[in-house]
């Protein structure tokens, strides 16, 4: 529904774009400055990669994201599917529960976790993954709920069961592929949250990529700016991969089937 953009729309888009682009450009300009002033180079970026913490903390954050994504997939997908089938009477309750993390500021939540959890659970960094599943609940639930509402789920499930498939096979072969976009969306949200989360990590005294950035920033201003540019750029790349992936996967599948 492309309509004609009038002048005021153009101004809004340009001004809005400028507000977002200029700080990024400025950060980029700063990140290229070298200590011997008046010249540009990639020194600040090079410095980042030379740090020991860079690789190790990045890898911690990626592993956290992976575990979070798996938890969302294993816990939330069957749950929301069931709410759309037999568990409809529980839907309102679960919906309510999934809104709770919006009401609880993360810092309050972090305090509660700090006092409530037994030592054995607090001894592994992966406790953060479980907490990220909770914090991302409002978004993952909504993404999956919308996805499932847009397909004739009951008929597909019954067709699958009548064909002889177990509930697990139905989930794997029929439901998840059909709502792949929604599942991708939910997982993407969970991953994005895991990679950028700071409050829980710092208050529970774990070192992740965001807390490492915060540490490095003290005393290395230019390097920190370079890191900021890098992390924003990295997030962008990940988003683009996710935004483009489902389509290309599907077209591959069709080609394969046509052979």
């Amino acid at each position: 529904m492309k309509q004609k953009l009038n002048l005021s729309n153009r101004i809004v888009l340009l001004a809005g774009g400028a507000f977002f682009i200029f700080p990024m450009l400025a950060a980029f300009e700063f990140s290229l400055r070298t200590n011997e002033s008046k010249s540009y180079g990639f020194d600040n970026f090079r410095w980042i990669f030379e740090q020991d913490g860079f690789k190790s903390n990045l890898s911690v954050s990626f592993r956290l994201a992976l575990v979070t994504a798996i938890c969302v997939l294993v816990l939330m997908v069957p749950t929301v599917v069931y709410l759309h089938l037999g568990g409809a009477r529980w839907k309102r309750l679960v919906e309510f529960i999934c809104l709770v993390p919006l009401v609880v500021p993360v810092i309050s939540f972090a305090l509660g976790v700090g006092t409530a959890f037994p030592i054995f659970l607090q001894s592994t960094v992966y406790e953060l993954s479980f907490l990220y599943v909770i914090v991302s609940l409002p978004y993952t639930y909504r993404a999956l709920d919308v996805g499932l509402s847009s397909i004739p789920l009951l008929t597909l499930v019954e067709a699958s069961r009548a064909s002889g498939a177990s509930m697990r096979q139905t989930l794997m072969y029929v439901i998840i592929p059909t709502i792949r976009t929604a599942v991708n969306g939910a997982i993407f949200l969970a991953i994005a949250l895991s990679l950028g989360e700071f409050t829980l990590a710092v208050l529970l005294h774990w070192d992740t990529f965001p807390t490492w950035i915060a540490n490095v920033s003290q005393g290395h201003v230019l390097n920190a700016i370079a890191l900021s540019v890098l992390s924003l750029f990295g997030a962008w790349v990940v988003v683009m991969i996710f935004a483009l992936a489902p389509k290309s996967l599907r077209s591959n599948k069709i080609q394969e089937a046509t052979k």
Binding site: A159, S163, A165
Partner: peptide, 30 residues
């Protein structure tokens, strides 16, 4: 899923991510 009944629904029952052939082969696949 153990009764071995073939069922045809009113409409919209084809698995949207599978090709026609995969749809027909589905019962044998599981």
């Amino acid at each position: 899923n153990k009764r071995n009944m073939g069922m045809v629904f009113q409409a919209y029952s084809l698995f949207p991510t599978m090709t026609v052939l995969e749809n027909v082969a589905y019962g044998l696949r599981v």
